[in-house]
Amino acid sequence: SVSKGKYAIGFVCTVAASAGYGLMLSLTQLCFQKVLKKQTFKTVLDMIIYQSVVATLIILVGLFASGDWKGLDREMKAFELGKVSYVMVLVWTAITWQVFSIGAVGLIFEVSALFSNVISTLGLPIVPVLAVIFFHETMTGIKAIAMVLAIWGFVSYVYQHYLDDRRS
């Protein structure tokens, strides 16, 4: 029921979001190397805090500029499990994303942006498997293809490192 134009816009936005995430990881590594030049855990936490504050401000500006903030109460009331569950889902999602951010930026700090992205991609197949196990969702073809592509990307990364090590 989606028009071809909206489908194309969705596809372009998905590819742009993926490229933006990769760019963010690379810019984080560049910032560590060229701007901060410090090798401390405090630097990692500062980087996460700065990125989170900027992202939060941009999202809040977008939320209020678009007028979507008016529908939050309606959305909360329409949530099947209730208002408290709605808020808890948002809070725990925010907490888990912060934990993920600490891990991702920590990997950039210790290894590289590419390795952080590869490890993030390797985690992608875990989510559908856990959803099938705990929430009894069906394993669709799209989920299976996404899992295969994520595993393929990780195996390609490991194999390339194997070839590079063999050459040296």
Rank of each mutant, 00 (worst) to 15 (best):
F135N: 09
T93I: 14
V99S: 04
V111R: 12
M139W: 13
V89T: 12
S52F: 01
S26D: 05
L72Y: 01
L57F: 11
W152T: 15
L63M: 13
G62I: 10
S18F: 01
H161N: 10
L130K: 08
F134C: 07
S120A: 15
W152Q: 01
W92Y: 15
V105A: 02
E137I: 03
V129P: 02
A55K: 03
S101M: 11
A16D: 01
I126T: 14
S66K: 05
Y157H: 10
Y86M: 12
T138F: 06
L124F: 10
D165G: 14
V111T: 10
D68P: 06
D165L: 08
L107G: 02
L130S: 06
K6M: 08
F41Y: 12
W152I: 13
I95P: 07
F115I: 14
I108C: 06
F79N: 13
W69M: 06
Q98C: 14
C31H: 01
S116Y: 00
Y162Q: 11
V54M: 05
S26Q: 07
M24C: 09
I151K: 03
K83G: 01
D73L: 15
R166P: 11
S112W: 03
V127D: 00
M139N: 04
Y159I: 09
P128D: 00
V35G: 03
V35Q: 01
V53L: 12
C31D: 04
V61E: 05
A146C: 14
L57E: 00
M139H: 07
G5N: 13
G22M: 08
H136I: 09
Q33S: 09
V129W: 04
G141V: 13
V91C: 04
V12L: 05
C13Y: 12
Q33F: 03
W97M: 03
Y157W: 06
L45I: 15
V35Y: 02
L63Q: 07
S26V: 10
V61A: 13
F41C: 07
